[in-house]
Design a protein around this nucleic acid. Sequence first.
RNA 1: GCCCUGGUAGUAUAGUCCGGUCUAGUAUAUGCGGCUGUCGCCCGCAGGACCCGGGUCCAAAUCCCGGCCAGGGCGCCA
Length: 449
Amino acid sequence: MSLRISVVSSSMDLDVIGDWKRTHYSVDVKPEMDGCEVTLFGWVQEIRDLGALRFIILQDREGTIQVTVLRKKTSAEVLSKADALQKRFSIGVKGTVKKTDITPRGVEVIPKEIKIFNTAESPPIDICGKTLAKLDVCLDARALDLCREENIAVFKIQHKAVEAVREFLFARGFIEVHTPRFIGSATEGGAALFKVDYFGRDAFLAQSPQLYKEQLVMSLEKVFEIGPFFRAEESHTRRHLSEFVSIDIEEAFADAEDVMQLLEQLMHYVCKTVSEKCGRELAVLKYSVKVPELPFKRLTYDDVLEELKSEGIVIPWGEDIPTPVLRTLGKIHPYFYFITRWPKSARSFYIQPCADRPELTEGFDLMWRWIELVSGGTRVASKRLLVKQLEEKGLNPDSFRCHLQAFDYGMPPHAGWAIGLERLTMMLTGKKNIREVTLYPRDKTRLTP
RNA sequence: GCCCUGGUAGUAUAGUCCGGUCUAGUAUAUGCGGCUGUCGCCCGCAGGACCCGGGUCCAAAUCCCGGCCAGGGCGCCA
């Protein structure tokens, strides 16, 4: 990548913010404020110059508003500022709201004073959406790319979703916790871990908070964590990242069915909140979020295999369901559905076997179409069983000594799950590549910006 | 890691099959000029590109080989 650092010495005198305070965001300027004076801050999104008339579209994080400069009726000072403006200049405008029928929003602002806080180069990508650059090019200029209304909409929706999750879990007595990202040994099995140098010792970046959140149910009982985790898999897909955000919960004295009910209620609440409160953002994305009906379908692994058989697809019992088959399944069940009672061979060592059929587990996935959104289950609370299952998976119980110790002191029955936040955001925004819903995505080849 | 497809101005694309008026077309962006109601404003002018290396050939953006990068799929994984 060629990184050209250009420093243009602008001859322009920049303004200081002084005692100016924002009175309104762009979208809060309404026709009924006709005649009021407002102070707006933001960036020049677009300029349309008709000669005696210059339209400046001011953008802030909430939207845009038109600033109209009538050449004949404007002071020389304002005019010289208005003429100097270019795309992405950071500006402040003090002016009068004018009600009008000519703009789509019914308002424009007639400037009395303009401040230029910073100038800008001509942007390397089109942020107005006329000639949209490809994802890779956008990501290379991510800070600028994030100024696009569509991207602002994506991350405001994600913010609302996270807010709704916290609100929901707090209301049900869950305590938010923070477990370590540095871990001492690569033990959990499953995903490959990133190795880091920890004061001369080998350490690893955590792939999940699984073991810690289980330990915490014996003290805090109901916990959740929202944070980044790391997988060193060489995945090259639209739905995998090396660094992703997980929404993890663990609950004492609960089983899979309890946490599945919690989960479907949470999904309902998140969808409802986003569809009700993010109307403007969803409109920008030309997408809508359907509020799901409860309860979600619960298909057992055996049900799924039967169903696939009638589609002419045969999966050997005990095997995981391959991606192309999940796509087929997603067409049959085009919204939320659980897959429950997975075979032991397809689940982790910490998942509780079914009492009635020990070759099955109380593990489940929550699917959204063909994408695995959430994974969870009843956990093993018995140390003896846990050790047995570790051995069955070819893992060494010795390297789990610290974790297993917790099970000596009254580990309660417990269950939990983990939602992939980015996958949840894909579901809420209709985006088809996980990189689009990640501020600064990390994958096998991308480490910058 | 494997398979498929691709890489042309800042951005997005046409041209590549079938090598030759390609002096590389278009849109948008940029710069300059013009325009009194734009909202993908409009009009005129200007500058700006064939991923890198090797090969075939009289001749390569175009064909062949290698590399790098990207997109999609698979696997791994959540």
